[in-house]
């Protein structure tokens, strides 16, 4: 779907992005992860030509984007900015309607679609008349997402969209966002420095450092088959959390009796281990089940690391 082919970009002689190649598959959720200054945002902005690469090419559906009019390209790509990037002089309704108006949609169609998105993003219709500064940070970011989704573009680029939010708001939005019907079939590229966020959302994670890709792979691959010491160190702080998050109960099948847990606690085979352990540890009558699940995880983990 999106193919980045040995692209480089430098600012004032310093390489920000250095010969990067990434292939993002149709419908894939790719997270580009790295510390600030690693080149992840530059990479993202080259995809909708907010930044032009010095070298290399980018293709979308096989077509070289440098051959297209930037405005047309951008209208086909949803873009969510770090601080929502809403226009302060527009009402929320107008902010959401920006792209459809550029695409000359009919008024009714814009209105119906706006209302539909508001409902999905848990925003009240009463917000439509307000201006961005009258909204909370979380609401603004939801509006920013609505604006990016409204035109049904097949590709969504997200530049640290949740980084300005507090932890509780962030995990709420994460949960909503993941379940959002609109994003299931989209190709999404999200840039973040937040490791748990990357593991929560990404089908694949592309870890970058100093303008280069260190490793690109599924969350499991990054944890259990790190390419080098940098990858190991990068996740060392939150490692246990990440391992529990990327493991689903289905993977413990055969080590413990899953049916018991599904029946007793309402889990499914897709429940992640982190969530399961949290439920168990919160219940006073589940001490033994908790211990047996930890045990099962240890066995599973030994197997993975081997």
């Amino acid at each position: 779907m999106v193919e980045i082919d040995s692209v480089s970009k430098s600012f004032n002689g310093k390489a920000a992005v250095d010969h990067i190649s990434i292939e993002v598959r149709d419908g894939e959720f790719l997270v580009i992860l790295g510390t600030s200054g690693c080149g992840k945002t530059t990479t993202l902005k080259m995809i909708n030509r907010l930044i032009e690469p010095d070298k290399g090419k980018i293709f979308i559906r096989g077509k070289d984007i440098s051959k297209r009019r930037p405005e047309d390209l951008r209208r086909e790509i949803g873009f969510v900015m770090q601080h929502a990037g809403l226009f302060p002089h527009y009402t929320i309704a107008k902010n959401i309607a920006v792209v459809p108006e550029l695409l000359n949609w009919k008024k009714n169609k814009i209105k119906d679609r706006t209302v539909e998105l508001l409902r999905k993003l848990n925003l009240g219709e009463d917000l439509l008349k307000l201006y961005p500064h009258e909204l909370s940070g979380g609401q603004q970011q939801r509006v920013g997402i609505a604006r990016a989704l409204i035109a049904n573009s097949p590709i969504l680029l997200m530049d640290e969209p949740f980084s300005a939010l507090d932890n509780i708001t962030k995990s709420d939005i994460h949960a909503e966002f993941k379940l959002l019907e609109e994003i299931q079939s989209k190709t999404i590229i999200l840039v973040t420095h937040d490791v748990p966020e990357a593991f929560e959302l990404g089908h694949r994670i592309c870890l970058m450092d100093e303008g280069k890709i260190v490793q690109i792979g599924t969350p499991k691959e990054l944890l259990y088959s790190p390419a080098n010491e940098f990858v190991v160190d990068f996740f060392s702080e939150t490692r246990l959390l990440l391992e529990c998050k990327v493991t689903i109960l289905h993977e413990l099948k055969g080590i413990i009796a899953l049916d018991h847990f599904i029946d007793t606690y309402g889990f499914s085979e897709n429940t992640d281990l982190w969530r399961a352990l949290q439920v168990l540890s919160a219940r006073g009558d589940a001490i033994l089940d908790y211990e047996s699940m930890i045990g099962a995880f240890n066995t599973y983990r030994k197997h993975q690391l081997a």
Partner: peptide, 16 residues
């Protein structure tokens, strides 16, 4: 700058 970038990103032309 972020407002201008936002305007560009939604696909506005220079005139728009």
């Amino acid at each position: 700058y972020s407002i201008l970038e936002s305007a560009k990103a939604v696909g506005m032309t220079d005139w728009q």
